[in-house]
Design a protein around this nucleic acid. Structure first.
Length: 158
DNA sequence: AGCAGGTTTAGCG
DNA sequence: CGCTAAACCTGCT
């Protein structure tokens, strides 16, 4: 299969982002600690992500392939995709929405998310803090700051 | 069947 | 806020 990859520089994250795709978006990953990469913006996904990081876009229209995932994981990611820009919900809340009480399983499913940001797994936070993030909590924190300009730690829900 | 995970709750300092 | 301990549910070995 002929898969291609685009690379963009995410100013708010201070790192590069690589997207692998063929007919649909396959994966998104963060490249930290590297400099001087050449940006390649061909796919719709890379263009939209680029706009997102510049604060010019709040939702994505590009298609992605998440067919390989298990039904539960799929449901979790699908539900995650409904969270709007600037919103955050907790792991347990997400579990509740898909009719489960397995909040830990939710975390596990989110960790398996092949396309971070496009499926906004960073908008799912812990009740007592930001929670974790596969690519590093620092990235999650910056993404949240980009979206709501306040520290998630300080964010209080009474 | 057993274990670990991007958690949660409650309890104590 | 910091730490500990037990417990829900799914996915991997």
């Amino acid at each position: 299969m002929a898969s291609s990859r685009d690379i963009i520089y995410a100013q708010p994250l201070d790192c590069y982002v690589e997207m692998v795709y063929d007919t649909k978006l396959r994966s998104v990953r963060f490249i930290k600690g590297v400099e001087g990469l050449k940006e390649v913006k061909i796919s719709r996904a890379s263009i939209e992500l680029d706009q997102y990081f510049k604060g010019e876009r709040t939702e994505f229209t590009c298609e992605m392939d998440i067919s390989e995932l298990s039904p539960f994981t799929w449901r979790v990611l699908n539900e995650t995709g409904k969270i709007k820009f600037g919103e955050t919900i907790t792991y347990s809340e997400l579990a509740k929405r898909i009719g489960s009480r397995g909040y830990r399983a939710v975390g596990r499913a989110l960790a398996a998310n092949p396309v971070p940001i496009v499926i906004p797994c960073h908008r799912v936070v812990g009740k007592r803090g930001t929670g974790g993030f596969s690519a590093g909590v620092d990235i999650k924190t910056r993404l949240l700051e980009l979206e709501q300009k306040i520290s998630p730690i300080t964010f209080n829900r009474s």
